[in-house]
């Protein structure tokens, strides 16, 4: 009997939810094990990095890589698993879009370190110990992976064959992809998105949608939304309009807005920018008709202020893969470099 193809799952900068989603395929795990040799998954299996290093290049058929690239170790593992896998799949929002870890790109590495280890209200760090790549202690030097300047997606470091989006990907969708491979069906062109639809969440959402006109936005706790009307029409920032279908519309089904975890739809590069375009299109301009320019600006600011964290809301799952990518972290680094240069002079 020929050896079973090898499959692996790795977590880089992630929460572990993707592994739970995999395990949630329940008894299908047995079918997975029947058809694949599940060789590597730090969350579930005891194989180590050196076991992978010992493999031939391309020896593993599939690697599901979840998590964003935050540290030099994440990047090393991305390169290693790329080399050892025939098909490398960006699995989940962190690997495909940067997800929550990439929101760190809205600030700098230094500011993050300061908040977490220096000035946090629950900290008592009088000697200001901050972890770094090398720390010298009497016994010698301790090393840690480098905390990179920005958080990247898997594709920012290596060539990616497919993407399975979601935070986490829905278990049924994960199984559908695995079952597809087991059945020996042909795979779509490289670069395709698997385990998701090619429309938006609105397609699955059962709510009644009408022409939209919104004069202010509400946070979810501020109103009790009607259960049948489109949430966006009720002033709730629902990301369903700019989010790839695939989840089945679970959140709007339970009266909560879509938060965008399946990332941008087919053909859209920047989910947040699309949301900004769409929100701009539905804000009621009628009250602004007779206003002067200054008053219009103030009015727009007032309306937008009803969404407290625009970037965090609209780019929650996709900042790392968006047009901004490195975001402020890159911009600030550039500014700092310029400032340092002029100071030195």
């Amino acid at each position: 009997m020929a050896a079973k193809p090898k499959i692996s799952m790795y977590w880089a900068s992630s929460c572990g939810g993707c592994e739970i989603a995999l395990v949630n395929i329940h008894e299908h795990l047995l079918e997975l094990a029947d058809n694949f040799d599940f060789v590597f998954c730090p969350c579930l299996l005891d194989t180590k990095r050196h076991d992978i290093e010992a493999m031939d290049d391309g020896e593993m058929l599939i690697t599901f890589f979840n998590g964003a690239l935050r540290t030099s170790e994440n990047i090393e593992m991305a390169h290693l698993l790329r080399r050892k896998s025939t098909l490398l799949v960006a699995f989940g929002s962190c690997a495909s879009g940067g997800c929550i870890p990439a929101l760190a790109n809205l600030t700098t590495r230094e500011a993050l370190m300061e908040t977490v280890y220096g000035s946090g209200p629950t900290l008592d760090n009088a000697v200001h110990v901050v972890p770094g790549p090398t720390t010298t202690v009497p016994e010698g030097d301790l090393t840690l992976p480098v905390f990179e300047r920005t958080v990247g997606t898997l594709a920012s470091a290596v060539d990616v064959d497919y993407v399975i989006p979601g935070c986490p990907p829905e278990s049924a969708q994960i199984w559908a992809v695995i079952a597809h491979v087991i059945a020996g069906k042909p795979l779509p062109p490289k670069g395709s998105v698997l385990g998701a639809g090619d429309k938006t969440v609105c397609d699955d959402c059962k709510r009644v949608k009408e022409e939209k006109l919104v004069s202010r936005f509400h946070r979810t706790w501020e109103i009790i939304p009607d259960r049948t009307q489109c949430l966006l029409e009720q002033g709730i920032v629902c990301m369903g309009i700019a989010t790839r279908s695939g989840c089945g519309g679970l959140c709007p089904d339970v009266n909560m807005p879509c938060i965008g975890c399946y990332g941008p739809p087919e053909g859209v590069r920047d989910q947040g920018a699309k949301m900004i375009g769409a929100l701009g299109a539905i804000i009621d301009v009628q009250p602004m008709k007779d206003m002067g320019e200054a008053r219009v600006a103030a009015h727009i600011a007032e309306v937008l202020d009803t969404i407290p964290d625009l970037a965090g809301t609209l780019y929650k799952f996709s900042l790392g893969g968006s047009l901004m990518q490195g975001g402020l972290a890159t911009a600030n680094a550039a500014t700092q470099a310029t400032t340092a240069e002029s100071t030195a002079r």
């Binding site: 090619d198 429309k199 938006t200 969440v201 609105c202 397609d203 949608k209 009408e210 022409e211 939209k212 006109l213 489109c230 966006l232 369903g240 309009i241 279908s245 739809p265 087919e266 053909g267 769409a278 299109a281 539905i282």
Partner: peptide, 12 residues
């Protein structure tokens, strides 16, 4: 075939 009918475009 890829429009989900959100109706954002109608008023713009």
């Amino acid at each position: 075939e890829r429009c989900s009918g959100c109706k954002i475009c109608l008023s713009v």
